[in-house]
């Protein structure tokens, strides 16, 4: 008998507080697996957000700092500039990155900071109870959009990957999802590449993960993954939006 899959050593034994089926857990372990495979767990510093992932520092078996709401890229900028030998990651949700932290992420990307950002986009504010986020789909219900988001009143969602790809600063931008084991494998590849972009000193790497929120969407975990496939991905298409590494896809 040989073990072909086990829990990453990049994670602690603390039980995750996330709701059943929340994709945060999947992305946490992908990040942990990538750092473990790169032998960088001792050298990594994660900047964790305000939002559901606010306590991610308890789950990562590497150093982490809880940042002010949306300001993880600013904190990461400081850490990386003080000690460029560290692998500095920001892990942010859509309320954190695409709303209150829009300024920080846009300017960190524009400056081409040599950090890696993992952006979890599930189209809703999870921790605070399902309010509308900047990424909520048109027509999608939220506690602050009872009849579904009306773009005439509440404006249009932001496609962050496409927006950042127009800047000259970023080196690598990809949008992935985690609805199937195949997509999980692709997401891991993308995170690994974004981390290598940083390790090789090339610049800013950004991976957006189209994710789910079973609790606030009012769906089971399995149905929420189907919703991602049917509704979220058509609006937030997967793929590489920028790649200056010369490796192509």
């Amino acid at each position: 008998m040989s073990v072909v899959y086990e829990k990453s050593k990049g994670l602690t034994d603390v039980k995750l507080h996330y709701c059943p089926g929340c994709a945060h857990g999947i992305v946490h372990k992908l990040l942990a697996e990538c750092l473990e495979e790169m032998s960088e767990t001792e050298n990594a510093i994660a900047c964790v957000p305000v939002g559901c992932a606010v306590m991610a520092n308890k789950y990562f078996n590497f150093d982490a700092i809880q940042c002010a709401h949306g300001r993880a890229p600013a904190t990461a900028t400081g850490i990386k500039r003080v000690d460029p030998s560290k692998i500095v990651i920001t892990y942010q949700g859509d309320g954190d990155l695409a709303s209150i932290g829009t300024c920080e992420i846009v300017h960190a990307a524009a400056r081409g900071e040599k950090i890696t950002t993992i952006f979890i986009n599930n189209g809703i504010y999870g921790m605070t109870g399902g309010q509308m986020a900047p990424t909520t789909l048109p027509g999608m219900k939220a506690t602050t959009a009872k009849h579904g988001r009306d773009v005439k009143v509440q404006g249009n969602p932001i496609r962050v990957s496409e927006m950042l790809a127009t800047l000259d600063g970023p080196v690598y931008i990809e949008r992935v999802s985690v609805t199937t084991p195949g997509q999980v494998a692709q997401a891991k590849k993308a995170i690994m590449k974004a981390l290598k972009v940083q390790k090789e000193g090339l610049g800013f790497g950004f991976v957006e993960v189209v994710s789910s929120c079973p609790t606030n969407w009012g769906l089971t975990a399995v149905k929420a993954m189907e919703y991602v496939k049917e509704k979220m991905i058509p609006y937030y298409p997967l793929g590489v939006f920028k790649d200056l590494t010369g490796e192509g896809k």
Binding site: E6, K7, Y18, H24, P181
Partner: peptide
């Protein structure tokens, strides 16, 4: 068949998969 799909999808890393040689 030790494909590890279940373990890769598990958000809580609760699953270990072994291959029988």
């Amino acid at each position: 068949i030790a494909c590890t799909s279940c373990a890769r999808m598990c958000p809580d890393s609760a699953i270990t998969v072994e291959k029988i040689d």
